[in-house]
Design a protein around this nucleic acid. Structure first.
Lengths: 208, 208
DNA sequence: GTCTATAATCAGATAGAC
DNA sequence: GTCTATCTGATTATAGAC
């Protein structure tokens, strides 16, 4: 869908892109580790090894840094989606994506933003790349959800949008953090438990 | 369980308690509305109508304010639990409590704290009233969960602690915020959808 | 574009009079 | 205990030289 024009980049341009990638990578890790409010721009600069003022030449504000990190993780999600096997069913695809999200989160690589911060909120809404990425993912997942509902695999009583939000919410699921903190379970066990809870619910299975 | 000694309070003491209640109430609303980081102590003082320095005579830090708000909401939860009908089953009780949590959240009365803030974290861990309240609720819900698992109503494959965390997490479920923001559903519909998702999962029901 | 140095602001916490 | 006034430190963002 995204028309990547064949790039002919000068050395300087590649350096610039590499540096911005390093910046966004650092932001991603800090957002995953301590969240938006606790992350300071000084920290980001220190991690990248450049001066804070140089950061502001690349990104005009802290909010834009966060937006770039979100774009990055959404791109990674798209890459994962594009690599899914063609023969898989919509439900299998959805499960795979949720599993991937949980694994990224458990690996400490999932940036999380406060849903309440208003300045951040408006910055994201005004960010073209962010909104585009969000809509692209929503379209893909939304189509799968509706297909799975039509095929009788997902509960058709629930609005598709509610199911979509439920999937998105796995990216900031506090259950994962709680379970991970307790150190009683392996990452794999946590993924399985959350997946089970998400798709099968907490109720006991009806004996078939 | 809590031995409330019959109080004989002077007028001054009652005034003090009333003021502290007003403070904690304001903190509760601000935490629910904008979260811990965005809430400022100045705001709290302004809402209560006292000077910031006076606030600090009652609570030694912002973290303690937050802890008091959490204690307040946990007390309200205990009151709700104590009022549940005696004849109800463990599963019914659990559903009722989750429903109550969602209703409080939808009413904008559920204080939420960042799970990542470390200074706040240690303050909570060192707060006797907070830890006591948390453990009391955990004990009650935990007993119900195990009973429901033994009775075949809740999935016995899942560790009880994972189910407990899943319930706690409803108090800060971003799905609720997303759905509420969209303004497509009534509060009651949102409660039902989240409850269904939580207990029955997203998969379609097996035709019985 | 990168740096050092600094502005400008804001928020948590306190001093000290009453 | 309550107030006004203030301190202190942290943080976002920028000025200006190279």
């Amino acid at each position: 869908m995204t028309s990547d024009a064949a790039p002919k980049l000068t050395f300087k341009q590649r350096m610039l892109i590499a540096r911005e990638e390093a910046i966004v990578h650092a932001v991603n890790r800090l957002l995953a580790e301590k969240g938006f409010d606790a992350m300071t721009v000084d920290e980001v600069a220190a991690q990248v090894g450049i001066a804070k003022a140089s950061l502001y030449k690349h990104f005009p504000s802290k909010e834009d840094l966060a937006a770039a990190a979100m774009v990055r993780v959404m791109r990674r999600a798209q890459d994962f989606i594009n690599a899914l096997p063609q023969e898989a069913s919509p439900l299998e695809n959805l499960r795979s994506v949720v599993r991937w999200v949980l694994q990224v989160k458990l690996a400490g690589d999932m940036p999380t933003l406060p849903s309440q911060n208003s300045s951040l909120r408006s910055a994201l809404l005004g960010n073209r790349a962010y909104m585009d990425g969000l809509m692209e993912i929503s379209d893909t997942l939304g189509a799968w959800i509706e297909a799975a509902q039509a095929g009788g695999q997902l509960n058709a009583q629930l609005p598709a949008i509610a199911i979509l939000y439920t999937f998105f919410a796995r990216a900031c699921d506090s259950v994962v953090e709680f379970l991970q903190m307790g150190e009683l379970f392996t990452d794999e066990q946590i993924v399985d438990m959350v997946l089970t809870t998400c798709f099968d619910g907490l109720n006991a299975r009806q004996p078939s």
